[in-house]
Amino acid sequence: DAAKSIIDLAVYGSAQNRSYERLALFVDTIGNRVSGSDNLKKAIKYMYSALQDDKLQNVSLESVKVPHWERGKESAMMLQPRQKNLAILGLGGSVGTPPEGISAEVIVVSSFAELQSREQEAKGKIVVYNQPYVSYGETVQYRSRGASEAAKVGAVASLIRSVASLSINSPHTGWQDYQNGVPKIPTACITVEDAELMARLSSRGVKIVVQLNMGAVQHPDADSFNTVAEIVGSKYPEQVVIVSGHLDSWDVGQGAMDDGGGAFISWEALSLIRDLGLRPKRTIRLVLWTGEEEGGVGSSQYYERHKKDIRNMDLVMESDIGTFMPVGMQFSGKPEARVIMSEVMKLLAPINITKLYDNAEGTDISFWMQAGVPGASLLDDASRYFWFHHSEGDTMTVQNPIWMNHCAAVWTVVAYVVADLEEMLPR
């Protein structure tokens, strides 16, 4: 009755609310944790100590190099047709402006195609992208590629409508990628409201001028660590189920949702198993990744270091789309493995979270999945996730202890049962 015991302890028993309370203490103490920052170093040190205090096994830090981008002071002001402050968040990896800033006329476009069709107008201007929010995966292209696409047509900077499904004049940051051979121009996100304002002004033929100041600096890569702890398997200790979330965040809000919740339910999974005196046949390994926001930097180095052991990697699990009320699990693997995972999900009938969906997702586990290892990701009611994502709104206030209890129960039952089956998942 292991599954029922886990559910009872996580949702109704003495461990209820523990992951929430641990997370609150952590983010209230440390704050946000951008790659290369002192806060991230403190966070890793904090977790290293906390996991040891929790009496987990093989607590260790695995050294990696991560980007170190610093935002600096930044501001934007619409000068014409009237003065208006624009709330902005510079994008990770962006170059800064000259000290005096950049003052230029604006061209507003709603798509890359429109930018191409109006390329003659864009030279020497600031490109404002007012792309509609379709889905995160589709719309985020404007954030990651917007600067280089604008630079190709001679723009001097780009301002991109935040990738947000709801806005209260809140800018959302994120990583952006410069293309090789294309000039690097400053790039930031503006709010949905300001993007739409400038689009309306522009559609009326009104000339818009914006002053942009960004003090962003790219430092040399910094030392960082993936944080690891285990419950060592009793029969096949060399075989591993990974449960994971990422410890780094953006430099706004508290990083409580992205991905504090995912990291802390993953820690909770090991705590629950330990509390119940369970010892699966295989090793359950907690990995708290670093440098995820810059493109899975810590996890890619982990993969390179450990891929020689891929034969023993049973299942890789990642929670990185919030810990709202869970609705099931996403899974990528062979049909035979899916049948087994469907059976495992039935064990969660007492809390009515039994659905298995397709297509596990998660930057940090993608390297393993692409190499054929079965992968699973927590699916929750993420309808509000992109309201807060990469914004000052990503705070503890978004989190809910009851939802986290349920997430922890789902996470733990799946990790434990898969790790304890007599055989590894087919692949």
């Binding site: 599954a3 062979k334 035979e336 087994i340 064990l347 304890d420 007599e422 087919p426």
Partner: peptide, 23 residues
């Protein structure tokens, strides 16, 4: 029958029974 990389239906049934044992 077992395919080279697959799992036989009999084996799958046995694993399903094993999973059910964790209720």
């Amino acid at each position: 029958t077992d395919s080279q990389h697959g799992v036989s239906s009999r084996k799958l049934e046995r694993i399903k029974e094993e999973v059910a044992g964790y209720k």
